[in-house]
Design a protein around this nucleic acid. Structure first.
Length: 774
RNA sequence: GCCGAAGUGGCGGAACAGGCAGACGCGCACGACUCAAAAUCGUGUACCCUCGGGUAUGUGGGUUCGAUUCCCACCUUCGGCACCA
């Protein structure tokens, strides 16, 4: 478990942590040694925002929050191992975050290049995406429109692992998380094809449709493409440059949106289609992103919808080169959309007539034979930008020397401490740049004058390896103790919100694989089993927020109901994977449940139940144990509490019928407390001791199901006619299909309904159901 | 816009490999206890109805003896979209 110290503990924290805690406790009772750690992801933007707003040092704000949240975390009654608590903002931790950076640098997995940031010219500061708001992309603080500024920044080569990241064979992860990651990584197979401008400059494009090469009627470059200036004619220059400026300040998401009118500008330049030899105009348009592929595309309007819309908007030619079988295609000028269906190649020079199923490979072979391109795989995944122009993060441990260039900070000098006495208010520079003592150092190589990198690291860096630090949070010889690694890793069960699917969970997998290849650790994956919780919404069904005034504060609930009731309600009110709206009347039901348990187990009653009552009680107790065991294993927490409630209702009936004092009653009570223990640990322990079982319920083994006790005396045979329920017949278990069929057909209700009808078929579901088809 | 998830009574939800839709809880109604109230306990609670049944799991189709469950299309809501974590 890993909490961001944002202030007070939120009900969402409880939801993320308590159901997994019940499972951790359950697994311990089943005999596993469960490590359930807690820590704080303490660097990041909110600390700086709060600091600016309240004029308080980010460090002071963060550590005060941690202190408060630790107290609140202890109120949850979770079985955290506090000995392993860690804080990523501690030098003891970020020393090793920096160490990882140096390993990646040495392994060639870290590099620098120019990359744009969002910048507010009025606040004079780099902005995070979430600080940029609205269609016009303005600064959240001062509403000034944001500009894009190019800075030299550090990247990790996540793309080097794109292919391996697509392999989930070792993982028990939810299908939709894997799907999200696959889409995020975005593998496409095709070809890199080289066009040339009329002046002879090569323009490489990536295409997934080499079979449409003869249908290319124009090219589109990203407005940032390096060749734009060169191909633009003087007549078009003013228009092109104006468009470049406009495109620059749009987000990629805005630019990729397919429901906008296509915009673009003709550069005046032409390129030559390497297949057909045709001369085609070169345009620039913002729907082509520099960050994907080569930043240039060959446009095939007849067979690509975005290209089609662009061609229509600017009256560019459309040429059909794929003829789907049996489909009458309109003339290009009458088309209303591109033709996506596969088909034989037409109007394609030497490849005309190639059938659909061969077109991709044949076209690819043609491209390679003629030396105009080659087979290529492209990924949507970017390299990971790790530089942040911020104060509250781990400094990137690099020194720039005028003679030696980029020099890693020597390992024995880690951590590169983040100085406390800086101006952390926005100034337009990385705050660390304004700290002269800190910034200027001597070069570790030549001893000459040098300066430190003043950017800090993305906090995703801290959270990519925290599970390793939990193993040995105070270990000094390395980021983790290898013995502990061998004992515990990989993480067996990892839980978190679905919002982490594509970022944190890709970063941490990349990190692990990179660390494996560097030789620091073993294994291919950091976390084997993943499960996601949903979100607790406000009583109005909306996301909780201070501005909506629908925030539920767990502290007040604990004061009013106690931690056990809050825990029980949280796992009861909805499916954990789903989440849902809070209900302040709903929690009353769980408070009532615990009060009922308390009195029912302790207040004596009349004795003398029938054998039948006791057998029914025992049956229900063991059936409940069976289903709860399944539920814990499968993260189906809400039915754990409802099953316990059902059992309690059965126990109330049995107690009224004189079960008190019987062996069956005592067994049911004992099982009940053991089953409650993971969910409501405090009240279970209290009752366990009051009833004389000693210390402690939490050290007991999970009980065994008595399968024989679970067997029903009577089974309801459901009889349907044409799939509609017509009768229910009570039978002793163990009847054959033939008996079921005979019994069903001889039922008076069925006989009456079948009067004068012909039976076409009788379907028997063994031990359950008979369906008569007429 | 793209990607993902979800739509079941007045409400939250259950139905574990396609086989009794609505477990459990909330709310509500009635009753018991009480001078009274709260708490507690008990009973009932999808809709329509000619009391035999009929209709119901976002909408429309499909597969099947049988669909909340599988397939297709659509609608609505929620989450993510790379510098929030």
């Amino acid at each position: 478990m890993f909490a961001y110290p944002s202030g007070d503990l939120h009900i969402g924290h409880w939801y993320a942590m308590t159901p997994p805690d019940t499972r951790a406790r359950f697994m311990r009772m089943r005999g596993y040694n469960v490590f359930f750690p807690i820590g704080h992801d303490a660097f990041g933007l909110p600390a700086e925002n709060a600091a600016i707003k309240r004029s308080i040092h980010p460090k002071e704000w963060t550590y005060a929050n941690i202190e408060r949240m630790d107290k609140q975390l202890r109120m949850m009654g979770n079985s955290f191992d506090w000995r392993a608590e860690l804080i990523t903002a501690d030098p003891e931790y970020y020393r090793w975050t920096q160490w990882w950076f140096l390993q990646f640098l040495e392994a060639g997995l870290a590099y620098q290049r120019m990359s744009p940031v969002d910048f507010c010219p009025s606040c004079n500061t780099t902005l995070a995406r979430e600080q940029v708001q609205g269609e016009d992309r303005h600064c959240e603080r001062c509403e000034t429109p944001v500009i894009r500024k190019d800075l030299k920044q550090w990247f990790f080569r996540t793309t080097a692992y794109a292919e391996e990241l697509l392999d989930y064979s070792q993982l028990d992860w939810p299908e939709h998380v894997k799907t999200l990651q696959r889409k995020w990584i975005g593998k496409s197979e095709g070809a890199n094809v080289v066009f040339h401008t009329e002046a002879g400059d090569p323009i490489e494009v990536f295409t997934t449709r080499p079979d449409t090469l003869w249908g290319v009627s124009f090219m589109v470059l990203s407005p940032e493409h390096p060749l734009v200036a060169k191909v633009t004619t003087d007549a078009q220059r003013a228009e092109v440059e104006a468009y470049q400026i406009q495109a620059k300040n749009q987000s990629d998401m805005q630019r990729e949106s397919t429901d906008r009118e296509k915009t673009g500008v003709f550069t005046g330049g032409y390129a030559v289609n390497p297949a057909s030899g045709e001369h085609i105009p070169i345009w620039i348009a913002d729907y082509v992103l520099m960050s994907y592929g080569s930043g240039a595309i060959m446009a095939v309007p007849a067979h690509d919808q975005r290209d089609f819309e662009f061609a229509r908007a600017f009256e560019l030619p459309i040429k059909i080169v794929i003829q789907p079988e049996g489909l009458e295609l309109p003339a290009p000028e009458e088309m209303t959309e591109s033709v996506q269906a596969s088909g034989a190649m037409v109007n394609s020079g030497p490849l005309t007539g190639t059938p659909a199923e061969e077109s991709f490979e044949t076209a690819l072979a043609y491209v390679e034979e003629h030396g105009i391109g080659e087979r290529a795989v492209n990924y949507r995944l970017h390299d990971w930008l790790v530089s942040r122009q911020r104060y509250w993060g781990a400094p990137i441990p690099v020194i720039y020397c005028s003679s030696c260039g980029t020099v890693p900070a020597p390992e024995d000098q880690l951590p590169v401490l983040r100085p406390d006495d800086v101006e952390w208010l926005p100034t337009g520079e990385s705050p660390l740049k304004l700290h002269p003592d800190w910034r200027f150092v001597s070069c570790p190589k030549c001893g000459g004058q040098a300066e430190r990198e003043t950017d800090t690291m993305d906090t995703f860096m801290c959270s990519s390896w925290y599970h390793l630090r939990y193993l040995s949070p105070h270990y000094n010889e390395g980021p983790f103790d290898p013995d502990a690694f061998r004992y515990w890793m990989p993480v067996d069960t990892y839980t978190g919100g679905i919002e982490h699917a594509t970022m944190h969970l890709i970063y941490t997998r990349f990190f692990h694989k990179a660390a494996r290849d560097i030789g620091v650790l073993t294994g291919d994956e950091p976390m084997l089993q993943l499960r996601n919780q949903g979100m607790v919404l406000g009583e109005d069904g909306e996301k909780m927020s201070k501005s909506r005034g629908n925030v539920i504060a767990p502290d007040e609930l604990v004061a009013r109901y106690g931690a056990d009731t809050v825990r029980a309600y949280l796992i009861f009110f909805s499916r954990w994977q789903m989440g849902g709206p809070w209900s302040s009347t709903g929690i009353e039901g769980n408070a009532r449940w615990l009060r009922r348990v308390w009195y029912m187990f302790q207040e004596p009653a009349e004795e003398g139940a029938t054998e039948q009552t006791l057998r029914a009680l025992r049956r229900k107790a063991h059936q409940t144990l069976k289903s709860i065991t399944w539920d814990f294993e499968n993260f189906e927490f809400n039915t754990i509490v409802s099953s316990l409630m059902e059992l309690l209702n059965e126990m109330a009936r049995a107690k009224n019928a004189g079960a008190w004092g019987s062996d069956a009653w005592n067994e049911a009570v004992r099982l009940y407390l053991l089953m409650m223990a993971p969910v409501t640990p405090h009240i279970a322990e209290e009752l366990w001791q009051k009833l004389g079982y000693g210390y402690s319920v939490h050290q007991q083994a999970w009980p065994e199901v008595d399968e024989e006790a679970c067997v029903e005396d009577k089974i309801t045979l459901v009889v349907q006619i044409n799939g509609k329920l017509r009768d229910r017949i009570m039978l002793s278990p163990g009847f054959s299909d033939e008996q079921a069929r005979a019994t069903a057909l001889s039922s008076p209700v069925i006989q009456e309904a079948l009067e004068g009808k012909t039976i076409r078929k009788v379907i028997v579901v063994p031990g359950k159901l008979v369906n008569v088809v007429i």
